[in-house]
């Protein structure tokens, strides 16, 4: 788990930051991006092992970002961060090839285990 690199894409910067801090505390390298453009740039320049992607983003939506990531063909597993009410969107994300989803406000241990699952599946 030590050399893992996670990118958290969420417009709620403070939330992204605290998740990153907690991951770092567990020895996982984490970066944050608050919008789609920044995230894609970061992925292109330094592809992470896993992307945690919020679906509700201003500007480019989570699903659009997911499509772009898929288009890069880097084979990066994406875990969707979803709200309770966005079942359809989550379903669409899963159909677009997202690895899994986790409901906000997330259970951190659950998140860790999903990350592990994603890595193992790779």
């Amino acid at each position: 788990m030590n050399d893992i690199h996670v990118l958290i894409v969420d417009d709620e910067e403070e939330l992204a930051a605290v998740i990153a801090d907690r991951l770092e505390f567990r020895g996982i390298k984490a970066q944050t991006a608050s919008d789609g453009e920044t995230a894609l740039k970061m992925i292109e320049s330094d592809p992470p092992d896993i992307v945690l992607l919020d679906l509700m983003l201003p500007g480019m939506s989570g699903l659009d970002i997911l499509k772009k990531i898929n288009a890069l063909d880097l084979n990066i597993p994406v875990i969707l961060l979803t709200g309770y009410g966005s079942k359809e969107m989550t379903l669409e994300g899963m159909n677009l090839g997202a690895f899994d989803y986790i409901m906000k406000p997330c259970d951190f241990d659950g998140l860790i285990s999903k990350i592990q699952e994603a890595l193992e599946s790779e």
Binding site: E12, E14, L15, V18, I19, K104, P105, C106
Partner: peptide, 8 residues
């Protein structure tokens, strides 16, 4: 979201 922040 704020709830998620508090929780995290």
């Amino acid at each position: 979201n704020p709830l998620a922040i508090i929780s995290q």
